[in-house]
Amino acid sequence: MKTRVLAIDDSRTIRNLLAACLEEAGFEYHSAVDGREGVDAYPDVAPDVVITDINMPNLDGFGVIEELRGEGINSKVPILVLTTESSADLKARARAAGATGWITKPFDDESLIFALKRVTGAVA
Protein backbone atom coordinates (compact mmCIF):
# COMPACT_ATOMS: atom_id res chain seq x y z
CA MET A 1 0.00 0.00 0.00
CA LYS A 2 1.19 3.46 -0.82
CA THR A 3 2.34 5.74 1.95
CA ARG A 4 -0.35 8.34 2.39
CA VAL A 5 0.71 11.94 2.86
CA LEU A 6 -1.51 14.79 4.03
CA ALA A 7 0.05 18.11 3.03
CA ILE A 8 -1.34 21.25 4.62
CA ASP A 9 -0.23 24.50 3.04
CA ASP A 10 -2.05 27.66 2.00
CA SER A 11 0.23 28.18 -0.99
CA ARG A 12 -1.00 26.57 -4.18
CA THR A 13 2.53 26.69 -5.53
CA ILE A 14 3.91 24.70 -2.64
CA ARG A 15 1.03 22.23 -2.79
CA ASN A 16 1.65 21.68 -6.47
CA LEU A 17 5.37 21.22 -5.90
CA LEU A 18 4.69 18.72 -3.14
CA ALA A 19 2.10 16.90 -5.21
CA ALA A 20 4.41 16.67 -8.21
CA CYS A 21 7.33 15.37 -6.17
CA LEU A 22 5.35 13.01 -3.96
CA GLU A 23 3.24 11.50 -6.69
CA GLU A 24 6.31 11.03 -8.80
CA ALA A 25 7.92 9.20 -5.89
CA GLY A 26 4.84 7.01 -5.53
CA PHE A 27 3.20 8.51 -2.49
CA GLU A 28 -0.52 8.90 -2.16
CA TYR A 29 -1.00 12.65 -1.93
CA HIS A 30 -3.78 14.49 -0.11
CA SER A 31 -3.85 18.16 0.64
CA ALA A 32 -5.59 20.84 2.62
CA VAL A 33 -5.44 24.59 2.08
CA ASP A 34 -5.22 25.73 5.68
CA GLY A 35 -4.74 24.41 9.17
CA ARG A 36 -8.40 24.07 9.99
CA GLU A 37 -9.15 22.16 6.81
CA GLY A 38 -6.09 19.99 7.45
CA VAL A 39 -7.20 19.00 10.93
CA ASP A 40 -10.74 18.42 9.70
CA ALA A 41 -9.48 16.24 6.85
CA TYR A 42 -7.20 14.20 9.05
CA PRO A 43 -9.66 11.51 10.18
CA ASP A 44 -10.92 10.91 6.64
CA VAL A 45 -7.53 10.86 4.99
CA ALA A 46 -5.96 8.84 7.80
CA PRO A 47 -2.48 9.71 6.52
CA ASP A 48 0.74 7.90 7.35
CA VAL A 49 2.50 11.21 7.61
CA VAL A 50 1.51 14.87 7.76
CA ILE A 51 3.42 17.75 6.22
CA THR A 52 2.28 21.14 7.42
CA ASP A 53 3.17 24.75 6.77
CA ILE A 54 3.53 27.08 9.75
CA ASN A 55 2.11 30.39 8.55
CA MET A 56 -1.45 29.73 7.47
CA PRO A 57 -4.84 31.32 7.86
CA ASN A 58 -7.49 29.55 9.97
CA LEU A 59 -5.17 27.75 12.36
CA ASP A 60 -1.43 27.85 11.85
CA GLY A 61 1.03 24.96 11.81
CA PHE A 62 1.60 24.93 15.57
CA GLY A 63 -2.13 24.76 16.05
CA VAL A 64 -2.32 21.87 13.62
CA ILE A 65 0.31 19.89 15.50
CA GLU A 66 -1.25 20.61 18.86
CA GLU A 67 -4.69 19.55 17.71
CA LEU A 68 -3.42 16.42 15.99
CA ARG A 69 -1.35 15.40 18.99
CA GLY A 70 -4.01 16.53 21.43
CA GLU A 71 -6.48 14.36 23.21
CA GLY A 72 -9.23 14.59 20.65
CA ILE A 73 -7.27 13.06 17.80
CA ASN A 74 -4.27 11.75 19.66
CA SER A 75 -2.36 11.18 16.44
CA LYS A 76 0.90 9.26 16.54
CA VAL A 77 1.85 9.73 12.91
CA PRO A 78 4.96 11.68 12.04
CA ILE A 79 4.37 15.36 11.40
CA LEU A 80 6.88 17.30 9.33
CA VAL A 81 6.86 21.06 9.45
CA LEU A 82 7.47 23.05 6.29
CA THR A 83 9.25 26.23 7.08
CA THR A 84 11.25 28.92 5.38
CA GLU A 85 12.66 29.82 8.74
CA SER A 86 15.68 27.83 9.75
CA SER A 87 15.70 29.44 13.16
CA ALA A 88 16.40 27.11 16.06
CA ASP A 89 13.67 28.81 18.04
CA LEU A 90 11.02 27.85 15.54
CA LYS A 91 12.17 24.27 15.37
CA ALA A 92 12.14 24.07 19.13
CA ARG A 93 8.59 25.38 19.23
CA ALA A 94 7.48 22.95 16.56
CA ARG A 95 9.14 20.08 18.33
CA ALA A 96 7.66 21.07 21.66
CA ALA A 97 4.26 20.96 20.02
CA GLY A 98 5.04 17.45 18.83
CA ALA A 99 6.51 17.86 15.35
CA THR A 100 8.63 14.97 14.20
CA GLY A 101 10.93 16.90 11.91
CA TRP A 102 11.07 19.77 9.50
CA ILE A 103 11.63 20.54 5.89
CA THR A 104 13.17 23.88 5.11
CA LYS A 105 11.72 25.69 2.13
CA PRO A 106 12.88 25.88 -0.55
CA PHE A 107 13.15 22.13 -0.64
CA ASP A 108 14.33 19.92 -3.46
CA ASP A 109 12.86 16.54 -4.22
CA GLU A 110 15.71 14.68 -2.62
CA SER A 111 15.64 16.45 0.69
CA LEU A 112 11.87 16.10 0.84
CA ILE A 113 12.04 12.36 0.21
CA PHE A 114 14.95 12.05 2.60
CA ALA A 115 12.97 13.77 5.34
CA LEU A 116 9.99 11.50 4.72
CA LYS A 117 12.22 8.47 4.75
CA ARG A 118 13.59 9.33 8.14
CA VAL A 119 10.14 9.53 9.69
CA THR A 120 8.20 6.90 7.79
CA GLY A 121 10.90 4.50 6.75
CA ALA A 122 9.45 3.08 3.59
CA VAL A 123 9.42 5.48 0.71
CA ALA A 124 6.14 5.31 -1.14
Binding site: D10, T13, I14, T84, K105
Partner: peptide
Amino acid sequence: VNAVFRAVHSIKGGAGAFG
Protein backbone atom coordinates in the same frame (compact mmCIF):
# COMPACT_ATOMS: atom_id res chain seq x y z
CA VAL B 1 -1.54 42.34 9.46
CA ASN B 2 -1.25 38.56 9.56
CA ALA B 3 -2.80 38.25 6.12
CA VAL B 4 -0.27 40.67 4.63
CA PHE B 5 2.54 38.86 6.39
CA ARG B 6 1.37 35.53 5.04
CA ALA B 7 1.08 36.91 1.52
CA VAL B 8 4.68 38.12 1.56
CA HIS B 9 5.74 34.91 3.22
CA SER B 10 4.07 32.73 0.62
CA ILE B 11 5.65 34.70 -2.21
CA LYS B 12 9.01 34.17 -0.57
CA GLY B 13 8.36 30.46 -0.10
CA GLY B 14 7.35 29.92 -3.70
CA ALA B 15 10.13 32.12 -5.06
CA GLY B 16 12.65 30.08 -3.11
CA ALA B 17 11.44 26.92 -4.78
CA PHE B 18 12.30 28.38 -8.17
CA GLY B 19 15.58 29.98 -7.16
